[in-house]
């Protein structure tokens, strides 16, 4: 069932922000990929001499870090796309659909995967920082992503239940 609602400014702003976010992340992925390729293909360039110090293998750590970061951004884009589709269904006045429960489930798995990538990225960044002598402060572990994933898994169940309740209500006279 599709119900058209008057446009909600909050939803419009959210959609715009999400699309800007997707565009920015896509640009960062592109720039990051180009930078890492340049670093690998032209290690003799003196743009970032510390990063291309072959004796320590820093360039490979940088490439690994960039690859992990790009993976995180790709996961974040997928997360944001799912969120954007959910926001669209709210705008259409019909958010309690089985598809949205599936989207929330996917978002939860994406949040978990992002968190896992974060755990991979942290020691890589620490190694690079120690190689280039920029190791400052602590890299603290954050479990916020796990909490977000947990909340999303619960929300997916809430949406599934809500969809069933709405179906029942629609068949009630």
């Amino acid at each position: 069932m599709s119900r058209t609602q008057p446009s909600d400014p909050l939803l419009t702003v959210t959609q715009i922000l999400l699309r800007i976010g997707i565009a920015v992340m896509a640009l960062i992925i592109l720039a990051g990929a180009v930078a890492v390729l340049a670093l690998l293909l032209f290690p003799d360039q003196q743009v970032a001499p510390q990063l291309t110090d072959a004796s320590k293998g820093t360039v490979w750590w940088v490439a690994a870090g960039a690859a992990t970061l790009i993976t995180i951004l790709v996961l974040s884009i997928a997360f944001t796309l799912n969120l954007s589709r959910i926001v669209s269904t709210v705008g259409e006045g019909d958010p309690f659909r089985p598809e949205n429960a599936d989207r929330l489930d996917r978002m939860a798995w994406l949040a978990l995967a992002t968190e896992a990538c974060g755990f991979v990225l942290m020691p890589v960044v620490r190694t690079i920082a120690s190689h280039i002598g920029e190791l400052r402060g602590d890299f603290e572990m954050s479990f916020g992503g796990f909490v977000v994933a947990l909340v999303l898994f619960i929300l997916a169940r809430v949406f599934r239940l809500g969809t069933r309740m709405r179906d029942d209500l629609e068949g009630t006279v």
Partner: peptide, 10 residues
Amino acid sequence: ILKTGKAKAI
């Protein structure tokens, strides 16, 4: 819906 027996609840 009620007449045609398509109702889930009354």
